[in-house]
Design a protein around this nucleic acid. Sequence first.
DNA 1: ACGCTGACTATTA
DNA 2: CTAATAGCCAGCG
Length: 113
Amino acid sequence: MPEKDFTFFEDVYAIVRLIPEGRVTTYGAIAACLGSRGASRMVGWAMNRSHGMSPPVPAHRVVNRNGLLTGKMMFDGPDAMRKLLEAEGVNVTDDKVTDFQKIFWDPCIEIGI
DNA sequence: ACGCTGACTATTA
DNA sequence: CTAATAGCCAGCG
């Protein structure tokens, strides 16, 4: 089997695409599962780069530690992220995910950590 | 080749 | 309690 040619951000894409509808995760959770807790910035940066990727990455399901939609402005519109989340059953109030802790999805489970 | 920036998080003052 | 700083890794100028 080939070595992990996958870079940090490629792993991030794989995880984000595994997030089920109606669930959200955090940058830190993804980074921590990959082995680098402080690499949360890389996760966000990877999301910024996810525009135009195939298959598309549901970056709207990735929020910061407080459930705040930090990257909503990077989408097609400042309300596009909130609209997408609400369309999946995620209530968003004041750019924050309601009951964020309840719908929080742990990527470590899916990647087998 | 070097330095800066960036959708973050945790710690210390 | 809030504010500021350090740590993280990879792309871009």
